[in-house]
């Protein structure tokens, strides 16, 4: 069975604040002269390897796991998957 690398990105939902990202932007980037940087959002990346028949099944299996095991709290965070490689 083919094996896929799937990256899971967990971030606060767009409407929900991210004080850590705000602090990195203000206190580190802008303060030290990188004023063209306009926004920083933090998050968590889970790099997974999964065996599946095809890439779509791999993605849906990973998403199913994220939802059913509460790898993120849907109240606060959004979760997206991206294919890193096959």
């Amino acid at each position: 069975m083919p094996r896929f690398r799937i990256d899971v990105f967990i971030t606060n939902k767009p409407a929900i604040r991210d004080p850590e990202g705000e602090s990195i932007l203000q206190d580190l980037a802008i303060r030290n002269g990188f004023v063209s940087v306009k926004s920083i959002r933090t998050g968590k990346v889970l790099a997974m390897e999964i065996e599946a028949e095809n890439v779509e099944l791999a993605k849906s299996k990973v998403m199913e796991m994220c939802d059913s095991l509460r790898l993120y709290n849907p109240v606060v965070s959004s979760c997206s998957v991206r294919v890193a490689s096959e």
């Binding site: 606060n12 939902k13 929900i16 604040r17 991210d18 004080p19 602090s23 109240v75 606060v76």
Partner: peptide
């Protein structure tokens, strides 16, 4: 509609 009730902590501030 609970989502709007979520409050984000910012202990540094």
């Amino acid at each position: 509609d609970e989502r709007s009730a979520v409050q984000i902590p910012d202990p540094l501030t």
